[in-house]
Amino acid sequence: MFDLLEKLGSYCLYHVNQIGRMGMFLFYALLSIIRPPYKIYPIIRQTYLIGTLSIFVIIFIGAFTGMVLALQGYHTLSKFGAEGLLGSAVALSLIRELGPVLAAIILTGRAGSAMCAEIGVMRNSEQIDALECMAIDPYKYIMAPKFAAGIISMPLLTAIFIVVGIAGGYAVGVGMLGANEGMYFSSMYNDVTFDDVYMGIMKSLCFGVLIIAICSAKGYFVHLIRGGGFGAEGVSKATTDAVVLSCVTILLFDFIITSVLL
């Protein structure tokens, strides 16, 4: 009985510690963005790695998401004779929910996992210790460019996802299923408001910071993983944890932000 209580206590303490560590990590990382010196090249490089290299997969998934939405939406709306609302249904779904959430999940898989592994390897091979010993702040040197790049890239990737999704919806809805082209765009024009776009932007910004924070922190603290986080296995465990935790957190925050902004 006491053994069970001890294990439960130790489990709770570990997770409380981890939440505290992540909170402090996020605070220092965001602080390091606004602290001088400001170096633009590392931010451009990270924006390329996180953002530019994700564009192809964002376009691909965005297009198919829009196409499936149009396919499903047309069949459902046509039951009520409301095919004319297809454009607004596709656009609103993408702008408010699917765009930010799916783009964030894609970014987690493509860039977040790589980021976690990279930082984890740096930690395990003492490269982060070396930075500290050279009086170079790892938050400023490693984290600040990644956070800045995440904040820049995420809304842009979401915007690309949404635009391509709407185009995909158009191709299927209008091109394949014969929905009215004018109605597709006019319903979108009439129903999409600035509040919808604002919600999409807020979500994408928030998700961008969350993904970078979780994936970087998991790599940065790989040596503190419960049960030992050393070597290749430790990095692999940290990367898996980072991806799972990021996806869960994205969905959790999606609900919270939607509840607040609706």
């Binding site: 390897v121 740096m122 091979s125 003492e126 490269q127 210790d129 070396a130 010993c133 050279m134």
Partner: peptide, 10 residues
Amino acid sequence: VLFQNSALFD
């Protein structure tokens, strides 16, 4: 510092 495994940035 010269680390045991050199700790060079790979």
